[in-house]
Design a protein around this nucleic acid. Structure first.
Lengths: 123, 123
DNA sequence: CGGTATCCTAGGTGATACTG
DNA sequence: CAGTATCACCTAGGATACCG
């Protein structure tokens, strides 16, 4: 369908922010992209890096990233199955964004929400 | 409770990405922050910049941003009411992040999801 | 003007079990 | 190993109406 010629945007300029955000929200997309910056990874390799993600959710997020053209999924027809995920060029172009997010996060650890697994000293 | 001494983080490094993301997700937070980069704004001024946000949602997002220490809410006890929103220092420190999101979005308009109000040439 | 209060829905997320 | 399929929940988000 006619997604084709979006000749003009009535969006206020900030809309670009949301557009980008919409691609990397979802509970795990950010981290997945981050880890793929380093190297191509297999399904279970990604999984190991995300302690608490479920199989279903990881599959979901990966499919979504694939649909958005940010990652590529390469299936090797072997047994047992082997599937590799890597960044597309477009995905890699997000590197500055991902790194900006990471740097800010590192610089502001003190105020991370509780969910992010901080270990509180028992004593 | 003891949010106090998060002495260590077991999070894999990518966690910082999610932590930051968690502060600016929510359908309108990104744009709101973006617009506040320019200037302090009143409630309805922000609203005008977000064509389709509902009053309730905008209030929600603003409260959330305030709770996270990213914006400041200043109430003038006058009639009619006047409330101004501005970035805190911490909020402003997100500028590189916001701008990274915006730049990428601008550079990749072609593949914005449909929801972002693109106007397709009828012809 | 700048909000609450209430109600409602879609879909994002999780748990679990099964499969090629 | 890398997924589907189901079920079930819960919160983000929207519509609407009222308030100080």
């Amino acid at each position: 369908m006619a997604r084709a010629r979006h000749t003009s945007f009535e969006c206020s300029p900030g809309c670009a922010v949301e557009a980008t955000l919409s691609l990397i929200d979802g509970k795990w997309k950010g981290v997945v992209l981050y880890h793929l910056l380093d190297s191509t990874l297999r399904f279970n390799e990604i999984r190991k890096k995300l302690p608490s993600v479920t199989q279903r959710m990881l599959t979901n997020q990966l499919r979504s990233l694939e649909t958005d053209g940010l990652i590529e999924r390469k299936v090797y027809p072997v047994i047992p199955p082997k599937v590799e995920y890597s960044l597309t060029e477009r995905g890699r172009s997000l590197e500055p964004v991902i790194m900006a997010l990471k740097h800010w996060g590192d610089a502001n650890k003190e105020l991370w929400p509780d969910e992010f697994g901080l270990v509180v000293a028992a004593d």
